[in-house]
Design a protein around this nucleic acid. Structure first.
Length: 423
RNA sequence: GUGAGCGUAGCUCAAUUUGGUUAGAGCACAAGAUUGUGGAUCUUGGGGUUGCGGGUUCAAUUCCCGUCGCUCACCCCA
């Protein structure tokens, strides 16, 4: 190291650059292509929102709100928070701009960074990224099933092979109230045998006890009362299940699956995958039928999910999907063997032709011989190399070499657009 | 927030157990064998405040304390 390092990126927040960032670009572009084709449109909202928005939607008692948010006061004394998730901001924006049209569903998707002040771990960063979709003004089991079928198509299309879809139904509002009361009574009766964390959960949100992995709590959890769904909720759940079976989506019922955000109301789901360590959920979501109303909008149903980008990338890697290869066929290695001020405009002309041809360039002004340059081009696995040596420079031409076939041709920079297609 | 492990070259790691002269190797990088045509081979070369600060000691990469960072797990979640 030549100088003392004074600054580092904040804990749990990564710098991202090539070649790693190439994978992100490919995944982002495929994700946009996919969602756009399914009729979703992108929505971008601020990274900061009023703290109160998250407290209201995610829930005061949730871990996210009471111990994981980056909250601070701005210069005007307003309490702002770096978004820990996107749904609240999306709903806020939709209501603020009256994007909802009566009787019509609204499909939106988003990509972007989220922030939670947790201790970093495999698949968990403080600044992490999510892709997600929300469908507003949708109410039926069909909508829930469609969302999950779309997820299956998305993951299959990306090439992810081993993943598991888990489903649960939280029941109607009354079901949840009754179930919560039942659980409360039951766990209070065995309170002394519960672990410390579960005693806390009992006072905050009983449902969370199901998430406990503590051995000593397991037998007690086994004996806990089961969800009793109302007839309506039960038929809703059955309908989703049968629609999924019809669409050949395999899934598991996971009665203990409880999303940690308070706004979920009906069907909830998550997708887990191998290759991820302890944080194995790559995606999760569900139905939230009261949130829009709670945030000051009309009483309409909605559902959505979000994908952990870092986790999806890990899972794809484990599945042997090499996203970066997609950009290599459009990458051109430029062996720039002639140097000097007088060559600048020539290289600029080449760059401009590459723009027209839709290529990305890897300009190398390194001193090595042509052998070295071609060796590097080879190592980078690019499809084309451009050679600009003394001969070419004198004629105002470039040699275009296709690396996999070895075919080579000389041409003027302005012929490159056509030239790439010909060799 | 709790716990454990780890910080040595651009990367992966030796040497630390039992403190001891100039901290090594592979990969990568660079030059040459080969003056402008590719995954090989050989030769040679550049690279290090051993994360940072302090302490113990004649002597610290090695032992101690602190700090920062990374990793994994818990918790929680995408």
């Amino acid at each position: 190291m030549e100088f003392a390092l004074k600054f580092q990126s904040p804990k749990g927040m990564d710098d991202l650059f090539s070649p790693e960032v190439d994978k992100w670009q490919v995944l982002e572009s495929r994700t946009r292509t996919f969602f756009e084709a399914y009729g979703f449109r992108e929505i971008r909202t601020p990274v900061l929102e009023a703290t109160e928005l998250f407290a209201r939607s995610i829930g005061e008692a949730s871990d996210i709100v009471h111990k994981e948010m980056y909250t601070f006061e701005d210069r005007g004394g307003r309490s702002l928070t770096l978004r820990p998730e996107m749904t609240a901001g999306v709903v806020r924006a939709v209501l603020e701009h009256s994007l909802l049209k009566q009787g019509e569903p609204l499909f939106v998707y988003y990509l972007g960074p989220m922030f939670r002040a947790e201790r970093p771990q495999a698949g968990r960063k403080r600044q992490f990224h999510q892709f997600g979709v929300e469908t507003l003004n949708t109410t039926s089991a069909v909508n829930d099933a469609e969302l999950i079928i779309m997820i299956k198509n998305y993951l299959d299309w990306l090439g992810l092979q081993k993943y598991v879809v888990k489903l649960n139904h939280l029941g109607s509002e009354e079901d949840r109230k009754r179930f919560g009361a039942d659980l409360g009574r039951y766990f209070t009766s065995v309170q002394s045998k519960l672990c410390k964390d579960c005693q806390f959960r009992l006072s905050q949100n009983v449902l969370r006890i199901f998430d406990c992995k503590n051995e000593s709590c397991q037998p007690l959890i086994e004996k806990a009362p089961k969800t009793v769904l109302s007839a309506e909720a039960k038929s809703d759940f059955n309908k989703v299940s049968s629609l999924l079976r019809e669409a050949q989506v395999s899934f598991e019922l996971s009665p203990r699956l409880v999303r940690g955000l308070d706004y979920y109301t009906g069907l909830v789901f998550e997708v887990t995958s191998i290759g991820l360590g302890a944080q194995d959920a790559i995606l999760a979501g569900g139905r939230y039928d009261s949130l829009v109303h709670d945030l000051g909008g009309p009483q309409i149903g909605a559902n959505g999910f979000s994908i952990g980008v870092e986790r999806l990338l890990l899972a794809l890697e484990a599945a042997g999907v090499h996203l970066e290869e997609a950009v290599l066929k459009d990458t051109v290695y430029v062996a720039a063997l002639v140097h000097g001020e007088e060559t600048c405009s020539f290289y600029r002309a080449i760059a401009q032709s590459l723009v027209e041809a839709g290529k990305r360039a890897h300009f190398s002004f390194a001193k090595g011989s042509l052998s070295n340059h071609l060796g590097r081009a080879n190592k980078l696995k690019v499809r084309y190399a451009l050679i600009i040596g003394d001969d070419e420079w004198k004629c105002g031409e470039v040699s275009v070499k296709r690396m996999d076939t070895g075919v080579q041709k000389r041409m003027k920079p302005e012929s490159l657009v056509k030239g790439f297609g010909e060799i």
